[in-house]
């Protein structure tokens, strides 16, 4: 089953799903970073030219600025910004080690040094091809440093379930089946009405009812599963 995710197992037996980010998002992040560097570089260049240094000093400072923007910018931001340069932060991706841990100096420096190889023969041609052919969208630098670029986990919006009176399930359900019922009740308002009834009919072995009644019964089950109280929830007494 294709999932687009990596399921990492921690020693505690917890599965961490990581979603590697594909070439388009990463290209976008690079473009944003490039623009930021360009703007900052021009600004600094202007500042360097302002005090009227001799041409040698000006040239030296400019070279230093270019060097830092090219090599220090991604490393420093990734090491100190929890794997995110400003562009990556905006796009919503993050560099992590391939075991899910945050990256350190070794990984940050290696993957960015290898940019030179990925850049070959021109404009990241090699990097793009390796990214397209690798199953985790890694470019050469990522392979060497053992890093991944993954989507930052989004905060899940908690949706309000439709109210139902909590009701016990008629027979025990597996966790994934319970999730499916909750999902259905959560997403039912977004489905076309006819499709809602169709799915509710599919749940007949569970509810023993058909159509609208089955849908309402599923809502009751969902309320029972989440432990939601029937009508406007009264404030829980503080422990």
């Amino acid at each position: 089953m294709l999932d687009g995710r990596l399921h990492l197992q921690t020693p505690e037996g917890i599965t961490l799903p990581l979603t590697p980010a594909g070439a388009p998002k990463r290209a976008l992040a690079w473009l944003l970073d490039f623009l930021f560097r360009l703007i900052f570089g021009f600004f600094m260049f202007f500042l360097i030219n302002l005090p009227g240094f001799s041409s040698g000093v000006e040239q030296g400072l400019t070279m230093l600025l270019l060097f830092l923007l090219l090599w220090a910018y991604p490393v420093l931001f990734e090491v100190y910004g929890s794997g995110m340069t400003p562009g990556k932060r905006i796009v919503g991706v993050q560099v992590v080690r391939d075991n899910g841990l945050p990256i350190g100096w070794r990984e940050g420096v290696l993957r960015n040094l290898l940019r030179a190889a990925d850049f070959l023969p021109m404009w990241y041609g090699l990097g793009l091809l390796t990214m397209l052919s690798n199953s985790d969208f890694r470019r050469l630098g990522d392979m060497l440093a053992g890093t991944l670029v993954v989507y930052r986990p989004q905060k899940q919006k908690s949706k309000r379930l439709q109210h139902g009176t909590p009701r016990e399930l008629p027979f025990p359900l597996k966790p994934e089946e319970q999730h499916a019922i909750l999902d259905f009740v959560e997403r039912a308002p977004m489905l076309p009405p006819a499709r809602q009834l169709e799915l509710a009919n599919l749940a007949q072995p569970l509810t023993g009812l058909a159509g609208e009644a089955s849908l309402r019964r599923l809502q009751d089950y969902a309320a029972g599963l989440t432990g939601a109280t029937p009508e406007p929830a009264p404030e829980k007494p503080a422990p």
Binding site: L173, E177, A180, D183, R187, P192, L199, P205, L206
Partner: peptide
């Protein structure tokens, strides 16, 4: 899949088969 609730349908069908 989002519009038609494919994942829900798959899960419900599986559930029905298991039950029967």
């Amino acid at each position: 899949a989002e519009l038609e609730g494919w994942d829900i349908e798959i899960a419900l069908r599986k559930l029905a088969r298991r039950r029967s």
